[in-house]
Amino acid sequence: MVAKQIQQSSRAETPGHAWLIGLAAWAVPGLGHLIQRRWFRALLLGGAVWGMFFTGLWLGGHLFKPGPNDQGIAALLQLLPMTANVGVGLPYIYCWLTNTGFADHAQMVTYEYGNTFLLVAGLINYLAMLDAFDIAAGRKQ
C-alpha cells in the first residue's frame, strides 16, 4: 500500500509555477518565499543569504570564475567554488558583469572568512531555493 502511495505521488506532476518560483528564489534570495507570502521565512532566508554575501565581500573575500589562463584541472578547480558562488543568483551575475568582488585581498586578516561567507551564501541559497520550490509544489507546508 505504501509502495502504491509512493508510486501515485511520484506521478503527480509538478505545477509549472513551482519552477518559476524556484528560479525566482535562486535569482533573488528570499524572493521565492516572498512571492508565496511566506513573509517571515523570506525575511530569515533572504536576510541570511544577503547578509552573508555582503559580509563576505566586506571581509575581503573574493568570488570565483574561470580565468583565461585556467585550463584543464586548474579550470575545474575554479568551477567547484564558482558553482557555490553562483548559488546567490543575480548578485553574482551583477558582480560578474561589473567585475566586482573577484580581486584577491589576501593581505586582510579576514580574507579566508570572506571567502567562506561568499561560498556558503550561495550554498544556503540553493537550500532556500529548494525549500521555495517544495512549498510551491505542495510537498511542504
Binding site: G47, A48, T55, T110, Y113, F117, I124, L127, A128, D131
Partner: peptide, 24 residues
C-alpha cells in the same frame, strides 16, 4: 576576538537557514 566574532556570525546565519528549511 575578531575570529571568534565572525565564526559566531557565520554559525548564526547558517543555523537560521538550516532551522528554517527543516521539517517539523
Amino acid at each position: 576576538m575578531r575570529h571568534l566574532f565572525w565564526m559566531t556570525v557565520f554559525a548564526g546565519l547558517t543555523a537560521i537557514v538550516f532551522g528554517v528549511v527543516a521539517k517539523g
